[in-house]
């Protein structure tokens, strides 16, 4: 198996705070790789650097065999690196269908097409409705994104990420703020994607992480203190001390 994403010696400092501290990490093609860690461990900063919104101070990010460290956000997306946001980040005044259609459009060449109506273009609407169906929103296509429930908006996030036909998904806390029912539905959706896509999953919900991940990396103060299978992580004494201990209370 080859590496889909390789991070080497990544450093990001905000003033005196080192949010990412000489982090090296690799994600194998086809795996679900979870990144966990307590609040402030630098998980969202890491996602930001992977997508290109945050520029690292040092280190390299390689994706699909090329160095993407200096590439802007939209070009990384074009290479097949898609993300979902921690805080729901959809186009609020667009319908669910139009949200996904825009993501489809982004990967059908340039959009300097000034005349033909986009809302009835079968090349956009067809795929958009398929992706909505994939995440279970087929019957909600005509609803404005702002009128969808929180859980549905998170599903829409995933549909938009999928619509860019990525090789790899970066999921920043897809279960954030969800009740148990919505969470379970999201786990089901992600399970279906498993194997088709490489996924980097940042998540607080331990049930979801252990249900989905092939490998887990534990981040503490911007450093990876352990990487391994869920079983190894569960039994790692450092991890139990630094992180899981707080959750299970038996450290």
């Amino acid at each position: 198996m080859s590496e889909a994403l390789t991070i080497e010696g990544l450093v990001k400092q905000f003033g005196g705070l080192t949010a990412t501290d000489h982090l090296s990490l690799s994600v194998t093609e086809g795996e679900v790789h979870a990144v966990i860690g307590p609040n402030g461990a630098g998980k969202t900063t890491l996602i930001g650097q992977l997508t290109g919104e945050i520029t690292p101070n040092a280190g390299t990010i390689r994706f699909a065999g090329r160095d993407v460290t200096g590439l802007p956000v939209h070009q990384r997306s074009m290479l097949g690196l898609a993300r979902s946001f921690q805080i729901t980040n959809v186009l609020a005044d667009f319908t669910a269908r139009a949200n996904v259609a825009l993501a489809v459009q982004a990967h059908q060449g340039h959009s300097f097409r000034f005349w033909r109506k986009a809302a009835t273009d079968p090349r956009l609407i067809g795929p958009a409705e398929e992706f909505l169906a994939t995440v279970g929103l087929a019957d909600r296509a005509d609803i404005a994104a702002s009128s969808l429930s929180h859980g549905e908006q998170r599903q829409l996030e995933i549909a938009m990420a999928l619509a860019t036909q990525p090789a790899m998904l970066l999921l920043d806390e897809p279960m954030a703020g969800m009740g148990p029912e919505d969470s379970a539905r999201m786990v089901e959706i992600l399970k279906r994607l498993k194997g088709e896509l490489t996924i980097l999953l940042v998540e607080h919900d331990m049930d979801a992480v252990f249900a989905l991940a092939d490998r887990i990396t534990v981040l503490v103060y911007g450093r990876a203190i352990a990487t391994g299978s869920p079983e190894q992580i569960r039994n790692d004494p450092d991890v139990r001390a630094a992180y899981l201990g707080e959750e299970t209370g038996d450290a």
Binding site: H74, F94, L102, S111
Partner: peptide, 26 residues
């Protein structure tokens, strides 16, 4: 024609949520 075309969708989308539009590749 313009505001309903693919071009128009991008311009209107950028008003609504530019960060998201860049994230999907525009």
């Amino acid at each position: 024609r313009l505001v309903n075309s693919r071009f128009g969708m991008v311009v209107r989308g950028a008003k609504s949520n530019e960060r998201r539009l860049m994230a999907v590749g525009f």
